[in-house]
Design a protein around this nucleic acid. Structure first.
Length: 708
DNA sequence: ATAGCACATATCTTT
DNA sequence: TATGTGCTAT
């Protein structure tokens, strides 16, 4: 595809620092990929390029695009997330930062458990110090580069919290483990080794960064030091799409960059190629309500396009029914399911859509939520493997010492913990010293397992765990609930096999020269990339995902749902102007995902956490320009289905000849949109929204022309 | 020590 | 809603 003038300029820019402010849909990824291709064609070796993306998905996509553009061996080209790259470096140079060779990576859940343990060890009330929140604060401090020492003098930090932080660090270090934030911190520490830094500065002649507005303080420092020699740092970002401040991202890095790299070239990409004019106008109007923007207005050459539609649903069921109806209509007209995306603020909102899609027999795929490697039964098996690798991994030890139940209860465990605490040793060591039969049996089990696992294929190692540890029986006793877990255990074997195959053949491994055990690779993979792609990944399916995970993607049809005060914008940001601005950017991100048709939905009433609540339309809807919006009026009949059975029977709406949301033409009233329908056959009636208002029409009498 | 049950509680986004 | 925690009976 041709590049426009600005894009071309960015791609061909001479070496040196450069900042590309790239609006949504302005061809950002294309510029980045083209520049890499250009550098390679210009004679740079793949090994001299480092490209950093924000998600694993984005890294994969870019690699694929690059491979398609160039007929070239890309081995040696480093492309990945900050976390992934940091991990790779740490595997290679662990000794420089006093890490054990087999260090493990803690995911968010592991970190929380460790916090809980720290709280208990300090004899603090874990009600008063909820692990989830404390872990969140610690992680944010770490993202800004603040260790316990730096916080010591801070009056705003309660002393207990500081103590918890310190204890957490102690436990974590003893376990030879790194949390997500540590990966970045330790990677930054690597740069304190001058020869090593010089080596990488020499090696990576060109550093390119995607989604730069989402970098945090530590990531920025890491980049700055890496590039401070040759200054060949090419960053691409959009302040309007900064949606990760809650995770420590600092948009200010865009300004810092210009300050720290004087003479940096600035290029703005403002021409949008993705969306129709109405979609763009609507999105621009919303984001214009934010202040302190770098200033940038997207425009498009396209003038055509359907208006943005707004559907006001009675409740979340109605919302789901409407959206699924529209999707069925799209598919019936020959559209692909995968071109339809349902985007919501929080993952919990997926359920009514899943139910309606299921009922309608429409394949769908949900991204996010509880992912494969985050499931308890899967994490248990992984914990056994972690112990095999690293006996001092206390988190893993605690997780499975009594799973399945083997008579090691709270009392024994408490004794273990205090012994470990007193002597400053790991739980594994403490268990060895206790010389208690049941504990010994557990230690022996792990040792035997480790022995059996040596020199085995990865999937064989997983199989060995399931063979030597009666986890299957344990879950099988759990009846219905256990069945799914059993399936997940079998799936884990498959996951291990395909990971090993991919890793050994052509995939990651050759491209990323990581030394060390495939097992530890796999465990890191499980923590870093919680596992998306299921077997049905290639099936044509409707896509359901949170707004956050939609960033960087595009779809012909976007249904942005749940636009209600308290839900979106989220309750917790209502009070806080900065939080509200971020919610608005999130809305902007969501709207700009749409290429052809954007449908916005909100419900008047919503069941949330089990309780029914009235919901006000989101303030973002009031910010829309009326002339771009086609409002679908609320239905006249207001009734919540009394029972699931009832809604199921009325859910079989295939007997209505006009799909909900579809366009029709009436001989007198003209064009309209099908809003609702009740009754069956010729007795049924259908509600149509005409420009003059909405009307109920008897199916037996009128004849309506269907428009595609 | 463990299973089962009642009760409380916090509701989001992700590497 | 759904998850987790604490209590009680076994």
């Amino acid at each position: 595809m041709e590049l426009n003038e600005r894009q071309r300029e960015a791609v061909l820019l001479a070496p040196g620092p450069a900042l590309v402010l790239a609006g949504a849909g302005s061809g950002k990824t294309r510029v980045l990929t083209s520049r890499i291709a250009h550098l390679l064609e210009d004679g740079l070796y793949p090994g001299q390029i480092l490209a950093v993306t924000f998600t694993n998905k984005a890294a994969r996509a870019m690699r694929e695009r690059l491979a398609a553009m160039l007929d070239m061996d890309l081995r040696g080209l480093w492309m990945g997330t900050f976390h992934g790259i940091a991990h790779r470096l740490l595997r290679m140079h662990h000794e420089l930062v006093d890490l054990p060779e087999q260090f493990v990576v803690l995911d968010a859940d592991d970190s929380q458990r460790l916090v809980r343990r720290a709280v208990r060890e300090l004899q603090l009330d874990d009600k008063h110090w909820p692990a989830r929140q404390v872990a969140g604060r610690i992680s944010r401090w770490k993202d800004s580069g603040l260790g316990p020492q730096e916080l010591a003098g801070e009056r705003s930090v309660p002393p207990q919290l500081l103590e918890i932080y310190q204890r957490y660090e102690l436990l974590r270090e003893r376990a030879g483990a790194l949390d997500f934030a540590d990966l970045l911190l330790y990677a930054l520490r690597l740069w304190n080794d001058a020869p090593l830094l010089a080596q990488y500065q020499e090696r990576f002649q060109q550093v390119l960064v995607d989604e730069f507005q989402d970098t945090n303080a530590v990531q920025y420092q890491w980049l700055r030091r890496l590039a401070e020699g040759h200054q060949n740092l090419f960053v691409v970002g959009d302040d309007d799409q900064s949606i990760y401040a809650w995770r420590g991202a600092e948009v200010e890095n865009l300004f810092r960059f210009q300050r720290d790299f004087p003479g940096a070239r600035l290029i703005r990409l403002e021409q949008n190629y993705r969306s129709t004019a109405p979609i763009l106008a609507a999105a621009n109007a919303v984001i214009a309500q934010n202040h302190d923007r770098l200033g940038k207005t997207l425009w498009t050459e396209r003038s055509e396009g359907a208006p943005v539609q707004l559907y006001r649903a009675y409740n979340e069921e109605d919302e789901a029914r409407f959206v699924v109806g529209r999707i069925e209509q799209w598919v019936a007209a020959g559209g692909k399911r995968e071109d339809c995306a349902i985007l919501y603020r929080s993952n919990a909102q997926s359920r009514p859509f899943e139910e309606h899609l299921l009922r309608a027999g429409v394949p769908y795929r949900v991204y996010g939520g509880l992912r494969f490697f985050e499931r308890a039964e899967v994490k248990d098996v992984l914990a056994y493997l972690r112990l095999v690798l690293q006996r001092h991994d206390d988190a893993a030890f605690e997780r499975v010492v009594n799973v399945p139940a083997r008579g090691i209860g709270a009392v024994t465990l408490e004794r273990l913990r205090s012994l470990a605490r007193e002597r400053g040793i790991s739980l594994w060591q403490a268990a060895g010293e206790m010389a208690q039969p049941k504990l010994n049996a557990f230690l022996t089990l792990i040792d035997r397992l480790a022995e059996a696992c040596t020199h085995q294929e990865l999937d064989e190692q997983v199989r060995l765990v399931l063979e030597q540890v009666p986890l299957r029986d344990w879950h099988a006793r759990d009846g219905d609930r256990g069945e799914g877990r059993l399936e997940n255990l079998e799936e884990l074997i498959n996951a291990a096999r395909s990971f090993a195959l991919q890793d050994g053949s052509e995939g990651l491994r050759e491209l990323s020269p990581v030394p060390g055990d495939i097992l530890s690779e796999f465990l890191t993979h499980a923590a870093l990339e919680a596992g998306e792609g299921g077997a049905e990944a290639w099936e044509d399916a409707v896509q359901l995902m949170s707004l956050h995970s939609a960033k960087g993607l595009e779809f012909a049809q976007v249904f942005l749902v749940g636009l209600e005060e308290g839900l979106f914008p989220h309750q917790r940001s209502l009070e806080d102007p900065a939080g509200l601005a971020e919610e608005r950017r999130l809305c902007y991100v969501g709207m700009t995902r749409a290429m052809q048709q954007l449908v916005l939905c909100h419900a008047e009433s919503r069941r949330l956490h089990g309780a029914e609540r009235l919901a006000l339309a989101s303030r973002f809807l009031r910010e829309l320009p009326a002339e771009e919006i086609e409002e679908l009026r609320p239905r006249a009949r207001i009734s919540r289905p009394l029972a699931p059975a009832l809604s199921a029977s009325s859910g079989g709406r295939s007997d209505c000849p006009y799909p909900l949301g579809g366009r029709i033409r009436h001989p007198v009233f003209g064009e309209g949109t099908v809003l609702d329908y009740e009754g069956g056959g010729r007795q049924g009636r259908v509600q149509i929204q005409f420009s003059s208002g909405s009307k109920w029409l008897a199916l037996g009498i009128v004849s309506l022309e269907r428009l595609s």
